[in-house]
Simulated assay, not measured.
Amino acid sequence: MGSVKMGRSVHGYVLRAGSEGLVNVHTALVDMYLKCGYIRIGRLIFDGMRQRTTVSWNSMIYGYVRSGYAEEAMVIFERMLDEGVEPTDVTIMGAAHACADLGDLDRGVFVHKLSDKLKLGGNVSVMNSLISMYFKCKRVDLAVNIFEKLRGKTLVSWNAMILGFAQNGRVNDALNYFYEMLSQNFRPDTFTMVSVIPALAELLVTRLAKWIHGYCIRSCLDNDIFVMTALVDMYAKCWEIHTARKLFNRMNDRHVTT
């Protein structure tokens, strides 16, 4: 709910009830404050804990990542390793996300090697995180290598590839993976479309713009504010400004990007 006022009331109850010594209760309070954006309070509680579980460490790592403090997340991750706490798949995903935000390839490779040591190569979610990390670190080759070896690919896996290629200026590769995804009967979601539509916009081909617009309509995604905003931007870049304006006028909701 993001209600720190209610969370503080619960925290007060914990103190009055004498439950503050319970590690799971402390961990839940850390997680609550971090999700409400109160990073400093969450960190104070974390630092004051006599005992910590892996979940406690993971909560801090993800809390920092979500709040845009990737370097602090890596400091916590490295401190966790120094204290001999064994990481889990959640830890690796959080650390990979932090490395991606920092564009830190060296530490990203370390996180990848650690995942191999923990035998997480078959964990699709972990591999998806590593794929995204390598793309953000501009190592497209390493991302492709993981994807090609990955068994049990999910929609998230395909989305990571499409977005990664688009962000690295490889528009044709992004489209080829989109077509391949469709051929394997994966149904695109909002995230897929807001990744592939900007890639199409870079080609400035009106025929393709109309095709992807039609696909959005057939997939019932034409009422999604993010998809519609991407379509407006695409038509404008293809010099179809009147079509862009028509879509804009038809939108029930608009945000500042629209």
Score class of each variant (00 low, 15 high):
S3T: 05
S3P: 00
K5V: 15
M6D: 14
V10I: 13
H11G: 01
L15N: 15
L15K: 15
L29H: 00
Y33H: 06
I41Y: 02
G42S: 11
F46Y: 08
Q51S: 12
V55I: 15
Y64W: 12
V65E: 03
R66T: 11
Y69N: 11
E72C: 12
I76G: 00
V85F: 10
V85T: 09
E86K: 15
V90W: 04
M93G: 02
M93C: 06
M93V: 08
G103H: 08
D104R: 07
D104N: 13
R107Y: 07
V111M: 05
K113L: 15
L118D: 07
L120N: 03
V124M: 03
V126S: 01
V126K: 04
M127E: 07
F147E: 01
F147H: 04
L155N: 02
L163H: 03
Q167W: 10
N172V: 15
N176Q: 15
F178K: 00
F178I: 03
T190V: 12
T192Q: 03
V196W: 02
I197H: 02
A199I: 04
Y215V: 07
R218G: 01
L221N: 06
D224M: 08
T229Y: 07
A230T: 13
L231N: 05
Y235D: 00
C238E: 03
W239N: 14
A244P: 07
R245K: 14
F248R: 04
F248D: 06
F248N: 09
M251H: 05
H255G: 13
